[in-house]
């Protein structure tokens, strides 16, 4: 599932994304509907990666499309639609996560929503966790990372974007992509180690906040 940012989703279509977006800008809602059809699943999966809950992911990804339609007047003709839409989706998800941060959500709840079998109680550090359980733990800890760190892992591991594509979507240099990936993986490792040794670490990562600090 390698995406060439926007190109993969428009491959095989007669009309390009840019043409559809230009038509949508002139008030053609059917053209916008075609863009939604092209990117709906991808938008849903990204939102799911951000928020962890299928219902919220569905609502947020749809809300992002509604916002994109309202803001389509600011879309520059001839530009790639997907990076522009991704910025809208990202802001929608980040705002949601910021609001949710005030609620005390247990990371394990999120893991259970994925249908993982999560071991109850603090794990015995001497015991070797099964790989499936390790994946569930890793997923739960990813859910607790700062949005900007969660995002970079999402783009790399689930969207399978190259560094160049990630830089394009995020609007930052490749060096920033690399340093952010390092920070995210390092933070994830620290959180997992903490969890494995003392069963803690369920508090959310607060240091980066809304994700703008990592650029």
């Amino acid at each position: 599932m390698v995406h060439d940012v926007g190109q993969a989703s428009q491959a095989g279509h007669e009309i390009s994304d840019a043409e559809l977006a230009s038509k949508a800008k002139r008030g053609n809602i059917d053209a916008f509907g075609e863009l939604v059809e092209r990117y709906k699943e991808r938008a849903y999966m990204i939102a799911l990666g951000f928020v962890g809950n299928p219902d919220d992911a569905m609502d947020l990804s749809q809300e992002a499309f509604v916002k994109a339609f309202k803001a389509i007047g600011s879309f520059k003709d001839g530009c790639d639609f997907y990076p522009w839409f991704y910025a809208v989706l990202r802001n929608t998800c980040f705002n949601f996560l910021r609001r949710r941060k005030t609620r005390k959500e247990n990371s394990l709840d999120a893991a259970r929503e994925y249908g993982f079998d999560v071991v109850d109680g603090a794990p015995d550090p001497s015991a070797t966790l099964e790989r499936k359980e390790m994946r569930a733990l890793v997923r739960a800890q990813i859910d607790n990372l700062a949005p900007v760190h969660k995002e970079i892992l999402l783009l790399r591991h689930y969207e399978l974007l190259s560094y160049k594509q990630m830089a394009g979507v995020l609007g930052c240099p490749i060096g920033t992509v690399m340093s952010r990936l390092y920070a995210a993986r390092q933070m994830l490792k620290v959180r997992l180690t903490r969890y494995m040794t003392d069963g803690g670490g369920s508090a959310s990562e607060d240091d980066v906040g809304d994700g703008r600090g990592g650029r």
Binding site: G33, K40, Y44, P54, Y114, R135, V138, H157
Partner: peptide, 20 residues
């Protein structure tokens, strides 16, 4: 490697049909 092995559940066809 572990992160790469995690799979997010895909949406149902029905949900995707109702999306637009």
């Amino acid at each position: 490697e572990l992160v790469g092995e995690i799979e997010l559940p895909r949406p149902s066809q029905e949900d995707m049909m109702k999306y637009w």
